[in-house]
Computed example of a mutant assay.
Amino acid sequence: MVLLDMEHYTTMQALNINASTFSVLPDYTLALTATSCCMSIFGAIFIIVTYCLLPGIRNFPRKLLLYLTLADILTAFGNLMGTIRYLILKDGEKIANNSGTIFYYASINEVCVIQSFITTFSNMASFFWTVVIAVYMFTAVVHPSQVFKGVKAECVYHLLSWGIPGAITITALALNVLGEENSIGTGSWCWIRSDLEPPVMTSIWMVLAGKGWEIMCYLTTMSLYCLLKLILWRRRMSYFSSLNNELREEDNNFMWVWFVLYLLRIWGTVRFFLNFSAISNNSEHIGKAQFVLLNMQGVGDSGQAFWNFVIFCLFDKSVRKGIAGRCRTRYESVPLISPVTESILDKEIGSHSVLEG
């Protein structure tokens, strides 16, 4: 853990605020997290825009990806909100002796709870939609059927992927467990309060409100996509479209979703287990590793929408050709000379001709 400096600690005592609530992260950690959030917001908007503009890519897996993107953009927005809050909190230390400071910190705490509500819900929803996509891709290849892509199936997907995270998050809010987490399992954003009593309740709620579903997502998606790869290999096929004509060749990119999820999220999972292990408090080397992992988590937990943009937009030739085609059409449809300018030029040319004659 990054410890508070003595001046900061004294200030918190003077204000009767729990000093463990506020830990100090370096500016470059906040900058990395904020940059990753902004890149994800851009990537998510691009995925949504291409889905709206390019009818040729609108199959059922792409619709599921759209729902996943909505969850991921909420996560990126929430983490960015938490990082901005953290920056304001650090600036607020400079006015700690002012009489109005207590009210200032109270407003910051409210922002912390709101942000925690957003990201707790969106992270769980992201895990659920990732699993839904993996399950659908598996069934579409192994047992093609309208049962898994009809209106009823989509309603079930929405009920599970939004409903379960929503119920857990609302319950956590009602029980007052959302709030300042002191970077135990996150970066510069809030999650589950680190001062719950008894202390084991913090661990239980972190598993229930995120980590448990995250590990479930790891295991499920890895298993299903590895089985899909094995099926393609045994049938001597290269693309899912060879087994289901409703899929596109580019839908093979979904095979990378679980791997990218691992690369982005594993840092936070390792930190989670280290923080609640006995050795983490007694090893200087683990403490340094924790700080490196914290920076990696700040980038990874906020970056899923951006890397989905890379996979499903930059690496999708249909999207690349579609966007290039629309840009080319728009460029060709814009006249180099407007009609008004052209008429003025015609008149000037005519007057010059009369004068010369």
Rank of each mutant, 00 (worst) to 15 (best):
residue 1 M to Y: 09
residue 4 L to V: 07
residue 4 L to G: 14
residue 11 T to D: 13
residue 14 A to K: 13
residue 14 A to V: 04
residue 14 A to D: 10
residue 16 N to H: 12
residue 23 S to L: 12
residue 24 V to N: 13
residue 31 A to M: 09
residue 32 L to H: 04
residue 37 C to G: 02
residue 39 M to A: 15
residue 40 S to Y: 04
residue 42 F to E: 01
residue 45 I to F: 14
residue 52 C to W: 14
residue 53 L to V: 11
residue 53 L to G: 02
residue 58 R to V: 06
residue 59 N to E: 04
residue 59 N to L: 07
residue 70 L to P: 00
residue 71 A to Q: 10
residue 80 L to T: 03
residue 81 M to T: 06
residue 85 R to I: 04
residue 86 Y to W: 08
residue 88 I to R: 11
residue 89 L to C: 05
residue 90 K to H: 11
residue 91 D to M: 13
residue 92 G to A: 14
residue 92 G to T: 12
residue 95 I to E: 07
residue 95 I to N: 11
residue 95 I to L: 13
residue 97 N to T: 15
residue 97 N to D: 15
residue 99 S to F: 08
residue 100 G to D: 09
residue 102 I to A: 14
residue 102 I to V: 11
residue 104 Y to H: 10
residue 105 Y to K: 13
residue 106 A to L: 11
residue 107 S to E: 13
residue 108 I to D: 03
residue 116 S to Q: 00
residue 117 F to Y: 12
residue 117 F to K: 07
residue 121 F to Q: 00
residue 121 F to K: 01
residue 124 M to F: 05
residue 131 V to S: 10
residue 137 M to I: 15
residue 138 F to C: 05
residue 141 V to Y: 00
residue 144 P to S: 01
residue 149 K to L: 09
residue 152 K to D: 13
residue 156 V to D: 00
residue 159 L to W: 07
residue 160 L to P: 00
residue 160 L to Y: 07
residue 164 I to H: 01
residue 166 G to L: 14
residue 168 I to H: 08
residue 175 L to H: 07
residue 177 V to Y: 00
residue 180 E to V: 08
residue 187 G to Q: 06
residue 188 S to T: 11
residue 188 S to I: 01
residue 188 S to R: 02
residue 193 R to N: 11
residue 194 S to V: 07
residue 195 D to R: 05
residue 197 E to D: 15
residue 198 P to F: 02
residue 203 S to K: 12
residue 210 G to V: 03
residue 211 K to T: 14
residue 217 C to E: 15
residue 218 Y to V: 04
residue 225 Y to R: 06
residue 225 Y to D: 02
residue 228 L to R: 05
residue 233 W to G: 01
residue 236 R to A: 09
residue 238 S to I: 09
residue 238 S to H: 12
residue 239 Y to E: 13
residue 240 F to H: 04
residue 240 F to R: 02
residue 244 N to H: 07
residue 244 N to R: 03
residue 246 E to H: 09
residue 249 E to S: 10
residue 257 V to E: 03
residue 261 L to G: 15
residue 263 L to G: 15
residue 266 I to D: 01
residue 268 G to F: 04
residue 275 N to C: 08
residue 285 H to T: 13
residue 287 G to P: 03
residue 291 F to G: 03
residue 296 M to V: 01
residue 297 Q to I: 03
residue 297 Q to P: 02
residue 298 G to V: 02
residue 298 G to T: 01
residue 301 D to Y: 13
residue 302 S to P: 10
residue 305 A to H: 02
residue 310 V to D: 01
residue 313 C to M: 05
residue 315 F to P: 06
residue 320 R to W: 10
residue 322 G to V: 10
residue 322 G to R: 06
residue 326 R to T: 03
residue 327 C to L: 15
residue 335 P to M: 05
residue 339 P to T: 12
residue 339 P to Q: 13
residue 339 P to L: 10
residue 340 V to M: 11
residue 343 S to N: 14
residue 346 D to W: 04
residue 351 S to M: 13
residue 355 L to Y: 14
residue 357 G to V: 11
